[in-house]
Design a protein around this nucleic acid. Structure first.
Lengths: 325, 325
DNA sequence: CTGAAAGCGCTAACAG
DNA sequence: CTGTTAGCGCTTTCAG
């Protein structure tokens, strides 16, 4: 592959002139401009961003660290992040942790070595890995420490919206499937739901589910959801589990009751919620806004600006077929 | 951020000794080793991969170019690619084209500038952008030219498997929803299905669908799928459209016929196919194998080895609730 | 408007 | 086992 020196030699000018031409960092005489242009074209020369970065101390690359891509929450958010990063001129290095702490450690090392300008890390389970990193970081969902800006959807208010909607649908026997307490957003969904229930004097039955339950077989689901059909309003902590609930009810031949006698509301507005049969009423996390905000926070950080320590993105109700109104 | 010179000075040795220590490229006396170790630790020094790459001419980064992340086919394949890339010591730069040719052009430029070691491009619509790139490339699904190795799942045989299964289920009135002919894999699915039909003297009704139809409303779906319920065996060119078909049938109150009087088989084994209600019988693309193979092809190319021009990954039948047997 | 020269952080051949 | 030196591809003073 050719380099700037070759271009300079063949154009009969100095390296610096070529550099100036490429970066438009100073005027170059029209005639030499044309000469250089031609040589660059003939040689198929492409400037080396590495050499440039070594000097400029900025790579315009950011690292994205996520637990998985199979969960639509993360694929949607990665989608949005790539989109806004690219608009702002940044490339994103995709890193999937997959519950492997050693891998997460190695990822961070590699990112630092390749001098990414910043890191966005979603729902990490190992905040200690990020404590002493001297590089701009934005945390999604899981807080790392007071110095690292945190961003998440307003799960608390989402929980309130969910109950509000069930009430609007006229539900009177309400059941909530609670997710794993170790995740802050999951906890907040519950709290929002419960806080409103208390304020409104509504009594709520609760059942506990865990992350592992997301991939259970239909037989196991029968056990998890048993008697859910006795309630007329059911809030499930995420869309995947709402999907499972629907499968359980269908297996019990209650498909036709869904959205009528049995109202169900999920959380996430995952793709599956608008494709599922029936389509699922849910609380939307507004991935686009999350992606945009995380990029803008990170870029502000990169530019040495101050950013607010916590940003909360509005959640909204998406009405579909699993609820009456 | 500190550099190798600083480390050398503080350790009281030369730059090259430090370099040797870091890369274990030659022996270093135990005592100086310890000195260097300490300084590196105190300074929180991390070697600069850019400087190293500029010399070694290799970045251990690869570019991944995909049309979207919303479609599970691409998120699953990206997942697999990241996984195997990272096992082999490569980072992946995620680039989402989103049907924007100008963006695709810019992406390629940026990747070349940052001297990625290779590119994996999935289902590109603009092969001309890749024709004259002097860099290892692996094409997924859509062929670019004879020089660029192509990799895809055995859609043709997948089509055969689909028909075979419908026949096994005893179907006699068979309908096929054909996808957009401009995509090779989609065409092959149809051909496999049809070829077996001809060999076996089975007559097949066909209907045409297009990419845009994937996101249509239920009213529009009614038009697309009208009278599909008159058939007892239906092959749909991908899982998303199979999902839509199921929603159409449910809206017509035929939910309980699915998997009984009406057998449906999709294609892709997308996540949604195992979560849908009912779960969808489908042909699996084996994302993991696709991801692994695309990485190994690319790395072979990077290492200057010869690779076969076309690789075809086996597809398999996944039986679920939408078919009888 | 242009060239010479120093330097970004690192590696490697060479000499000791 | 270690230091000196040249060089990777580029940018940017500083002169002219």
């Amino acid at each position: 592959m050719s380099n700037i020196r070759k271009v300079a030699k063949l154009s009969g000018v100095s390296i610096s002139t070529v550099s100036r031409y490429i970066n438009k960092t100073a005027n170059v005489k029209e005639s030499t401009k044309i000469k250089i242009e031609k040589v660059i074209y003939d040689l198929n020369y492409v400037p080396n961003a590495l050499a440039r970065s070594i000097f400029s101390k900025t790579t315009f690359q950011i690292g994205l660290i996520i637990p998985t891509l199979s969960n639509p929450f993360f694929s949607e958010i990665s989608f949005a992040i790539e989109n806004f990063a690219s608009i702002k001129g940044y490339s994103v290095i995709l890193n999937i942790v997959n519950d492997d702490k050693e891998k997460e450690k190695k990822i961070i090392k590699t990112l630092i070595e390749s001098r990414v300008d910043g890191i966005i890390v979603a729902r990490t389970k190992h905040k200690e890995l990020y404590e002493n990193l001297d590089i701009p970081i934005v945390a999604l969902e899981n807080k790392i420490n007071d110095k690292i800006p945190l961003l998440y959807a307003d799960n608390w208010n989402g929980g309130r919206l969910a109950l509000e909607h069930l009430v609007t649908c006229g539900c009177e026997k309400i059941l909530m499937f609670v997710g794993d307490n170790k995740h802050l957003p999951i906890r907040l969904r519950k709290n929002g739901f419960m806080d409103l229930a208390r304020e409104s004097n509504i009594s709520i039955a609760t059942r506990q589910l865990f992350d592992e339950d997301e991939n259970k077989s239909i037989t196991e689901l029968k056990f998890l959801f048993s008697d859910a059909e006795l309630y007329d309003g059911i809030f499930v902590y995420n869309d995947i589990m709402a999907v499972n609930l629907i499968r359980y009810l269908s297996a019990k031949n209650l498909f036709n009751e869904i959205g009528k006698k049995i109202n169900i509301i999920g959380f996430d507005n995952a793709i599956i919620s608008r494709h599922m049969n029936p389509t699922i009423t849910t609380i939307s996390q507004n991935f686009d806004v999350l992606g945009k905000k995380s990029i803008s926070l990170l870029i502000n950080l990169i530019n040495g600006e101050c950013v607010q320590p916590i940003s909360i993105i509005k959640t909204t109700l998406i009405k579909r077929e699993t609820t009456k109104n």
